[in-house]
Simulated assay, not measured.
Amino acid sequence: MNIIVITGGSRGIGAATAQLCARRGMGVILTYTSNAQAAESVVAGIHADGGKAVALELDVSDIKSFGAFTDAVRAELQSIWQKTSLSGLVNNAGHGLFNPIETVSEAQFDGLLNVHLKGPFFLTQALLPLMEEGASIVNLTSATTRVATAGVAPYAASKGALDVLTRYMAKEFGEHRIRANAVSPGAIRTELGGGLNDEFEALLASQTALGRVGEPDDVARVIATLLSEDSGWINGQSIDVSGGYIL
């Protein structure tokens, strides 16, 4: 059985990915920052469908905690699945900020950079010894790196850096047959940045070629495919999953 780690797996795209991957026969270790109840609800749903999953607390911005987290992952691998290695990592955890450049504080900027770039960099580094040959890494970036949308500059900049990092991961990990790809969602119906009101959703739908905003499952299906052997020859790519947002 393939076992994967999904950060930020208690809601939105992360939760949808955890559920779909479990339905496709993968074991899931999902993380949450503060909402243990939501995370356990996702785990319970997976168990009810006959899958196996566990939720572990992790603040992706707290680099010092990664050693203990890696030890916890190793312990869960052994106790639940009797395995010693991981088949995949989805760097999904994050948060949004919608402020014009002139109002962004240094603390806000650092918070975004820590969660969206520094965290994935060092978490991947920490978990790399557990990654088996043929494993897959998927980094969640954003369509805001492709188009300039006022108010999301620091968020988009950190995601753009993660996009570049993805290619370097693919290059450096290739000798171990570990793939790395990025998934770049467009407008998705999640709680990121406070969610969507009707007016904002209508605007985003009008800017999307397929005429609607995306659902978490739209992105989860692409992530799950990248984690599978079906995508074994896809490496170092950024895949736009936006329904044609601002083409």
Rank of each mutant, 00 (worst) to 15 (best):
K171Q: 13
N139D: 04
E132D: 10
K159Y: 02
R221K: 12
V104D: 12
Q19S: 15
D163G: 15
H176P: 03
S61K: 08
E199Y: 02
V213A: 03
T145S: 08
D110F: 14
R167G: 15
L113T: 04
V138Q: 04
V213P: 00
T17Y: 03
P216G: 15
F98C: 02
S158T: 12
L77T: 07
D198M: 04
A72K: 12
L247Y: 14
N91S: 13
I29V: 15
G119Q: 03
I63W: 10
G111C: 05
Q237E: 09
E76K: 13
M1L: 13
I46V: 11
A68P: 05
L196C: 10
A180H: 07
K159Q: 05
N92T: 15
G211Y: 02
L203R: 04
I188N: 06
A156P: 08
A157K: 09
G12Y: 08
G50S: 04
Q207K: 11
Q37G: 15
V213L: 05
T84N: 14
A15L: 08
I13K: 07
G160W: 00
Q108G: 04
K159W: 02
L113G: 02
R24T: 12
I3D: 01
R74G: 15
N114P: 08
A93P: 01
D217C: 04
A39F: 10
V152Y: 05
D49I: 06
A153G: 14
V5W: 04
F98W: 14
G50Q: 01
I3N: 11
P154C: 14
A15T: 11
A148H: 13
L140P: 11
D49F: 11
G25R: 07
G12R: 00
R23L: 06
D240A: 08
I6G: 07
A209F: 14
N91K: 10
L247W: 13
E106G: 14
E201N: 05
M131W: 05
E175R: 13
L203G: 01
E102V: 15
L89D: 06
A18W: 01
N35L: 01
R23G: 03
E172K: 15
N99E: 05
E40D: 14
G134R: 08
R23A: 12
Y155R: 04
L89N: 02
V138C: 01
V222W: 06
L247C: 15
G236H: 10
F122V: 03
E132I: 12
M26E: 05
H95F: 13
S10C: 09
L204V: 09
S41V: 13
L112H: 12
R212D: 14
E199A: 15
Q78P: 10
Y245Q: 02
W81H: 00
I63K: 12
A182K: 05
G45K: 10
V213R: 07
A22D: 11
A68H: 10
K83L: 03
Q237N: 07
L247K: 08
G160K: 08
P154L: 06
I46M: 05
N235W: 11
F66L: 06
M131N: 05
L192C: 11
A126Y: 00
Q37P: 01
A209P: 12
